[in-house]
Every structure is written in C-alpha cells, then in structure tokens.
Design a binder for these strands. Structure first.
Length: 105
DNA sequence: AGAGTGACTCATA
DNA sequence: CTATGAGCCACTC
C-alpha cells in the first residue's frame, strides 16, 4: 500500500502534468483520473501548491471557465498562458472546450 | 472526533 | 442570469 497523506496532491500533479500543450482538462475529469469524485479537491490541491512546474492554467471548470481566484495572478494570467499555447477563447474567461477538451488518457 | 473551508458540480426555484 | 442547498472528500484547527 502506498502512503496516502498528500499523495492526492501527487496524483493531481501527475495528471495535470500529462495535459498536452494546447489542451485543457476539467476539474471533474482530473478528479476521476485521480480516483476521486470531488472536483473541489482538485482545485484545492492546485491552489495549495501553485507550483510553476504544473500547467494548472490548463485546468478549468466544466464549461471551460477559468478560475476567478487563480493563484498566479487571477484568471487573466491563466488566459494569457493558454492563449500563448494556442488555446482559443470563446469569451473573456471561457475556453473553447469543443476543440481543446482533453481526451481520455 | 467535530467543525470549518474550498480554483467544483448538479439540482431546484 | 442569480441564489441556495446538497454532495463530495482531503485538509487544518
């Protein structure tokens, strides 16, 4: 048995790091991949670390909306990063999930 | 052990 | 559209 504790964090990071450039994943998707059902913990785990090594900007909510409380510098930074990777926005805070939604790993 | 919190999601009104 | 309630589960105190 692996130790749990903040193992959840590691799982989330593992998944998020897997997200290819130009793609985005939803909290619910990541939650499912880490073996949980709670999307909240995913966002919580991301915000709890804010590690620049993790493309947390590629994680958005179910509608592609970026987070209001994004850890780096608000949703503007998140959007800037995504646009920089070629992700299209259909609104100021909304990503075009129809194109960039992450497929099943 | 219990209460509070949270970058979510869904249902209802 | 907004607001509220519930579900969810790990973390902190």
């Amino acid at each position: 048995m692996l130790k749990r504790r903040s193992n959840f964090f590691t799982r989330v990071y593992k998944i998020v790091e897997k997200i290819p450039r130009g793609k985005v994943a939803t909290y619910g998707q990541v939650a499912a991949l880490v073996g949980s059902r709670d999307a909240r913990k995913v966002g919580w785990a991301l915000h709890a670390n804010t590690s620049t090594k993790i493309p947390c900007h590629r994680v958005v909510n179910k509608e592609g909306m970026v987070a209001e409380n994004f850890a780096f510098d608000g949703w503007r930074e998140q959007k800037a990063r995504l646009v920089s990777e070629g992700v299209k926005f259909i609104s100021e805070k909304q990503v075009d999930l129809a194109i960039h939604r992450l497929q099943v790993l």
